[in-house]
Write a protein that binds this DNA or RNA. Structure first.
Lengths: 224, 224
DNA sequence: AGAAACGGATAGTAGAGCTATCCACTATCC
DNA sequence: GGATAGTGGATAGCTCTACTATCCGTTTCT
C-alpha cells in the first residue's frame, strides 16, 4: 500500500497524512526506493487510531503524539501509559485558581475520596481538575447541585472498577496498552454522549409525558 | 464597580474583559457618561460563569455565547435550554463517518437505548457522538472493551435521573436554567475527573498492592 | 517514452482567542 | 483647575494549532 491508498482507504486527506508523518504520529513506511515507501495494514490501523484520538477523543496533535509514544514503548509500565492517557485527557487549560475557594474545593474532593477509601496521588492533575469543577459548582451557589457531587462519586466507583478489570483481563501487553488508551479516551466520549442521551430521555419523560412512545420514529415499542 | 475593578476582582485580564464585552458574552455596564460605565455584582457573577464554561467546561467562545443566550431568554422553554447546553457540549468536530460501520454503531446504540426504554430523538447530536465513540471502539477490535458499553448504559441511567431530578427540584426558573447549564457542562468535567481518580485508585490497588497509604511515583505525576 | 504518483521540504492558510495600541474623554487628586 | 491616570470603544496585531498547497527531483506504470 502506498501513501495515496492509505489516504483513500482511511478517508484522511493526503496532505494530512504527510503532516502526521512529519509530526511523528504515524511511523514512516518501509522505503522501497529513494522516494517510494510501502505501508502496511498496521499503518492504516494506526491512522484510524490517530483520527479517533483527535476527533472522538478531542486530543490535540501534541497530546496524541504523547499518548502514542507512551503506548509504543514496550518497556513503559502499564501505570505510566495509563498516566499518559490520563494526562492527555486532563491537561486542558488550567483555570485561574489562586483563590482560597479552590483549595477548599480540593479539600472537599480529597475528603470525599478518602471517605470511600480511594488511594489518591496528591499531585494528580485529575484531582486539580475535579477541584476546578467543584469550585465552579460551589461558586455558582446552587445548593440543589451539591448532592450530585456525591452521586458522581457513588456512580463512578463501580464503573471505574469494571473498566480497570476489563483492561487488565487482556492477554497481550500490546492489547492492554491499546485498551487503556481506547478505554480512557474513547470511553469518556462515549459516556458523555450517553449521559446527554439519558438526560434527554429522562427529562422528556418528566416534562413531556404525552410525547412518550415514539423514540426512533420506527415504531419499536418501548418494552419497559 | 468599573471595568478595571471587574478585571482585578475576577482575575480576568482587562483586555479580555473588553473582548468578552465585544463578543456579547458579557452585557455592557450601565453607562454613566459617554465613556464611563458602572458594573454590578451580576456582571462579576456572569464573568465567573463565562470563565467556568470556557476553562472548566472547555466551551469555545462561540458556544459559550450560544449557551448564555439561551439561558438569558426568559421565554425559552427549559427543554430548549437543555438542548442548547447539550448542543454546546456535543458540537465538537464531526469525525469522518461515511462508513457503514458507523451506521452499524449507531444502530447498536439505538438498540441498547431502546432495550432500556429510553426516549431518543433520532436527530439528537449526542446520538451521533455516541455512535462515533462506539464505532471507534469497535474498529479498535478489542473485544474486552465491548462489555463496557453495557456498563456505561447501566451506570449512566440512574445518574441522569438524579441529575434531572436535582435540576427540576429548583424553585425559580432562573435557577433551573443556571442549574442546567452548570450541571450539564460542569458536571461532565467533574465526572470525567472523578473517573480518572477512581481508575487510578483502583489500578494502583490492583497493580501496586504494597503501596497503600502513602503515594508517590505511579500514574500521572508528570502533569501540572 | 511520457504521464502520473511519490517522498520530502518549505511555505502558506484560516480560525480561535486573546493582546496591544490608539483615541477622545472623564474622573480624581492635589 | 490642571496634571494624571483610567475609561469605553475601535482597530490592528499576535500566537498557536491544524492543516493545506506548492515545488522538486525521482520513480513507477503503461
Amino acid at each position: 500500500m502506498r501513501i495515496s491508498e492509505l489516504s483513500a482507504t482511511s478517508g484522511v486527506p493526503l496532505p494530512t497524512v504527510k503532516y502526521y508523518l512529519r509530526e511523528g504520529l504515524l511511523p514512516a513506511g518501509e522505503r522501497t526506493a529513494r522516494n517510494q515507501a510501502e505501508y502496511g495494514p498496521e499503518h492504516l490501523a494506526r491512522l484510524r487510531l490517530i483520527r479517533a484520538l483527535i476527533e472522538v477523543g478531542r486530543l490535540s496533535v501534541a497530546d496524541t503524539r504523547a499518548v502514542l509514544a507512551a503506548s509504543d514503548d514496550p518497556r513503559m509500565p502499564l501505570n505510566e501509559v495509563l498516566g499518559a492517557a490520563h494526562d492527555a485527557v486532563t491537561r486542558r487549560a488550567a483555570p485561574t485558581r489562586p483563590e482560597p475557594a479552590w483549595h477548599e474545593a480540593r479539600a472537599v474532593v480529597l475528603d470525599m475520596a478518602r471517605q470511600r477509601g480511594w488511594h489518591i496521588e496528591p499531585d494528580c492533575p485529575a484531582l486539580d481538575q475535579a477541584a476546578d469543577a467543584v469550585a465552579a459548582v460551589l461558586a455558582a451557589d446552587i445548593p440543589e447541585l451539591y448532592p450530585l457531587i456525591d452521586v458522581y462519586f457513588d456512580v463512578v466507583e463501580p464503573m471505574a472498577r469494571r473498566e480497570v478489570e476489563a483492561v487488565l483481563a487482556m492477554e497481550s501487553p500490546d492489547q492492554v496498552v491499546r485498551g487503556v488508551v481506547m478505554g480512557t479516551i474513547l470511553g469518556e466520549s462515549l459516556f458523555n454522549a450517553l449521559r446527554l442521551l439519558a438526560q434527554q430521555s429522562v427529562s422528556t419523560r418528566l416534562l413531556d409525558p404525552g410525547k412518550g412512545a415514539d423514540g426512533g420514529g420506527s415504531g419499536a415499542e418501548t418494552g419497559a
